[in-house]
Design a protein around this nucleic acid. Structure first.
Lengths: 120, 120
DNA sequence: CTTCATCGTTTACGCTCGTAATCAGTTGGG
DNA sequence: CCCAACTGATTACGAGCGTAAACGATGAAG
């Protein structure tokens, strides 16, 4: 399931909370994005057509619910990047971030803990 | 510097070895990609236009050399993904891969070492 | 000098995307 | 019962992309 950048922004709203009417999605994105209402309607429709979300009638409007799970999408995306940029290996990716000082103290702590709990 | 998926594949060839003539890039991609020579020529030209590579005349042909550094590109790409999918935090990203069994034994070993050397 | 092969450049074309306006159906208010 | 307003659907349109063929310049060979 391939969704575009703009579409993913709409999905994030629905992942956080669903089902939502178009109006509510528009409201949720009002500050963050400077999109016209029509734009968001289009994106919802494309997501429908792709099968990433479903719509159920509720009175006069529709309520949208994600079908594509965020977890799955994140896996696809991050796996793709890992493959393309780091030969599919996680360690080089982390090393990369480390070299560019993108590892916060909190990250380091969490990573240490994660590794401890792993494969004891 | 935004380069497309297909363009990045051409860049990978040039990052591995440069300068290269178009012919050599074509040869390098012959097995991996089922692209026509014309396609690769187009991609090289788009990369030129974007300033991601430069060309210097060598006899009748041109030799291409990357200007955009792989390191920088990788940073941009991976940072973007980290931001969009994991709130900019590295630990959750690794946790994600861990949960999906994408951490090889080698990864774990390397990560342990990396963390040891870090902030002792 | 003329011709053919060889490169790089230009043009092409259908698709997706970002962005949005317009259309059409339905429903609540008068 | 009819019209205005709301809401989803359709249509639009330019840019970038993937993919590639056609064109044009130029050097090599006869």
């Amino acid at each position: 399931m391939k969704i575009s950048e703009a579409e993913s922004i709409v999905m994030e709203v629905l992942w956080r909370q669903h089902p939502l009417a178009a109006e509510e999605v528009v409201a949720a994105l009002a500050e963050a994005q400077q999109w016209q209402e029509a734009t968001i309607k289009t994106l919802l429709n494309r997501l429908l057509k792709k099968g990433a979300i479903v719509a159920e009638k509720e009175g006069r409007r529709y309520l949208y619910t994600p079908v594509l799970r965020r977890e799955d999408w994140v896996l696809e995306e991050s796996q793709g990047l890992l493959e393309r940029l780091f030969g599919g290996r996680v360690a080089p990716l982390v090393a990369h971030f480390s070299q560019h000082r993108k590892l916060s103290r909190k990250d380091v702590a969490e990573l240490r803990k994660l590794l401890e709990e792993l494969d004891p």
